[in-house]
Design a protein around this nucleic acid. Structure first.
Lengths: 191, 191
DNA sequence: GCCAAGGTAAAACGATCGTTCTACCCTCCG
DNA sequence: CGGAGGGTAGAACGATCGTTTTACCTTGGC
């Protein structure tokens, strides 16, 4: 039951990530989930529920990737490692870009989708704040939230530029923002 | 002829910007264009052509807004003014976010859409490079392209965060990146 | 031994969508 | 005068889509 639901959600997430939210019909989603149409509808009673189910799974996996507790190091290294994981994530899991923005673009009139995307982005931004607090404990509290916002916006820009201008350009442009930011954070934390 | 085509494109752009690319059917586009179905198809022989027509118009208008030749001032003021115009643009014209990324999300399998989006983003990035060259003529050439990439990525992050976290948060986070960047550019240009 | 429970496969339905076609009107130019 | 070009309104078509339903199979527990 719960296991099959998550196994189905895995297939849904994979398909939506590969082909976007507009192209695949319910029958293609059924094939990706590896179950019958009846079972698919039992666990996700509408196509919108399938979208929400895929997004929920995605949300957990993305935050786990972004803040990896097994990763060592602090300071600038911790932040750089997070962006390195993000870079790998985009290449392996999100060739068509951020799944949440894509979902909102494909379902502009769904309140449920919009709410889930907003929740994801808020927790995503909060995760950067926690990452920053752990990496730079000496950073003045007044500088914390702006720095978290800066990291969040670099991520948004990076994931947005990724599918349009390609990995190399997106990474170069993100580095042009990230490098001086980290230098500044190191200086402020040392002071 | 050419005039009616542009008048139709204006209606298409407005509708796509307001409701996204997934929701409005051809008949809703026809109503927004204010013409009959036959005339609409005469100028844009398929729905995909309507999308491309709207994007082409959008491309011209966006770049005109971003680099306003009538705007005065140089240095940091020129860059700040460009982002102020961008902020107004989002509020008035793009409540659902960047039209090009939305189009690509809604038409993931259209080569024509993808090509047009890529072209737009490349010219968009080049426009930032020109803006920067005009605003900071003394900036070392080695620092030019990274700075243009940084501005471009701030824009991408800002327009991406805008529809999910709202105008206030998006602007605050963008400022957290823009302010130190401009301070650094001023220093590098003065040296 | 059997009967729910939950699975598969696939037909069927109603709605919607992109596109084409029909029928008619206006207006400019030879 | 007359006819061609471009406009409007809207019916019609074929395809696709999301969803429901039918019919049948498998399995574990009383």
């Amino acid at each position: 039951m719960r296991e099959t639901a998550d196994s189905i959600a895995e297939g849904l997430e994979r398909r939506f990530a590969a082909d976007g939210f507009a192209a695949p019909g319910v029958d293609a989603l059924r094939a990706a989930a590896g179950v019958s149409l009846r079972t698919l509808y039992r666990h996700f009673p509408s196509r919108e529920a399938m979208v929400l189910g895929a997004l929920e799974r995605r949300h957990r996996r993305y935050l786990e990737t972004l803040v990896d507790r097994t990763a060592a190091g602090g300071g600038t290294e911790a932040v750089r490692a997070a962006f390195a994981r993000l870079s790998r994530w985009m290449a392996e899991e999100a060739p068509t870009g951020c799944l949440f923005r894509n979902a909102m673009a494909a379902h502009p009139d769904s309140d449920a989708v919009r709410a889930q995307v907003r929740r994801h982005k808020e927790e995503n931004r909060a995760a950067f704040a926690r990452l920053l607090a752990a990496a730079f404990p000496a950073l003045p509290t007044a500088a914390r939230d702006p720095a978290a916002g800066a990291l969040f916006l670099i991520q948004e820009g990076f994931t947005a530029a990724y599918p349009t201008l390609g990995p190399a350009q997106a990474e170069a442009d993100a580095r042009a923002l990230l490098d001086p930011l980290l230098r500044r954070l190191e200086k402020e934390a040392a002071a």
